[in-house]
């Protein structure tokens, strides 16, 4: 455990170190600009000459100005502390002052995205399980559904999302439902694939045994196929929930939505607010980690209750 923790911390420290190091060349042009305005000697002396140079070359020529790469208002690459500060200011700090659900709070935006994610995940998982049951029991469905399911995933969701939003908007559906449908579109697929494999997991002997009991198809499904598919289901759910989150965020991008993590990223990019983009990105990552972790927890408890060895 200690050794694990140590190696995890080493990796994290290396990433943060690399990130800080990258901030210098990325933000050097702006740093030299500001330094010159403040009257400091800069090489080369004119902005157009500096633009000819790459960030690394400029950083090498001006080693004394590195400090200016950090703490800028609109950096190309914000430093980790800037992102973390922004993240805290828009989540924990606002929550402590009772404004967790304010329009500027990432907790609020996360909730908007989360609700679409969860609804879409529920749709997608339900659809996935129903399709998998159909595929396993009907040869016609096996032959016809699977190719379409695979084809559906080859279309870039970014191209499809605006059409889904427009079509649904024309029949009066706005807000949560269209986003949830995009989420479901992404999350049903891993569930179908995993559940088809899971429902087919019982071997010939297990199926023969059910036959000797003269069990109906429904009984075989309920008492043999479904329990046997549980480990497969949970593996699929973990992929499905992160796909759902991506779906919900993508669903917020083309609509000009003003709420949700996707909207936060989009407005950030309109106004060059890189810090805002990065903090929304981190909020999404943290949300994904929580969702996947929660499913992992449910998985462990369920499989343990089912007597499967940990």
């Amino acid at each position: 455990m200690m050794r694990n923790l140590l190696s995890i911390l080493t990796v994290v420290a290396a990433i943060i170190g690399l990130w800080y190091a990258a901030c210098i060349p990325m933000n050097m042009h702006e740093a030299t600009q500001q330094a010159q305005r403040a009257g400091t000697e800069v090489t080369p002396a004119t902005a157009s000459e500096r633009l000819q140079l790459g960030g690394i070359a400029l950083a090498v020529k001006n080693p004394t100005l590195w400090r200016g790469s950090f703490g800028q208002d609109r950096p190309r690459l914000p430093s980790p502390d800037q992102v973390m500060t922004e993240l805290w200011n828009t989540t924990g700090a606002m929550a402590l002052s009772g404004r967790a659900m304010s329009k500027r709070s990432l907790v609020f935006h996360s909730w908007i995205t989360l609700s679409a994610t969860l609804l879409g995940f529920a749709f997608g998982t339900g659809l996935g399980i129903i399709l998998a049951v159909g595929i396993v029991h009907s040869r016609a469905m096996d032959m016809s559904v699977m190719p379409w399911a695979i084809a559906s995933q080859t279309i870039p969701i970014l191209a499809l999302a605006p059409m889904i939003i427009v079509v649904l908007n024309s029949i009066g559906l706005q807000g949560l439902i269209p986003k949830a449908i995009i989420s479901a579109y992404l999350s049903f697929f891993p569930v179908v694939v995993g559940m088809v494999k899971g429902l087919r997991a019982p071997g010939m002997m297990q199926l023969d045994l059910m036959r000797t009991y003269n069990a109906t198809q429904g009984q075989t499904l309920w008492k043999l196929r479904l329990p046997a598919s549980m480990p497969y289901l949970f593996a699929s759910l973990k992929i499905g929930i992160s796909a759902s989150l991506i779906g919900a965020i993508v669903g917020e991008l083309p609509t000009g939505a003003i709420r949700g993590l996707g909207a936060r990223m989009l407005t950030g990019s309109y106004y060059g607010q890189t810090i805002q983009i990065w903090s929304a990105l981190f909020a999404a990552a943290i949300l994904a980690a929580i969702l996947v972790g929660t499913i992992g927890l449910i998985q462990r408890r369920t499989l343990k209750r089912m007597g499967m060895q940990p």
């Binding site: 002997m205 297990q206 045994l209 000797t212 043999l224 046997a228 549980m230 089912m306 007597g307």
Partner: peptide, 12 residues
């Protein structure tokens, strides 16, 4: 009643 070569008990 049929007994197979492997016990084939349901692990769950």
């Amino acid at each position: 009643g049929y007994v197979f070569q492997a016990a084939g008990l349901y692990p769950w």
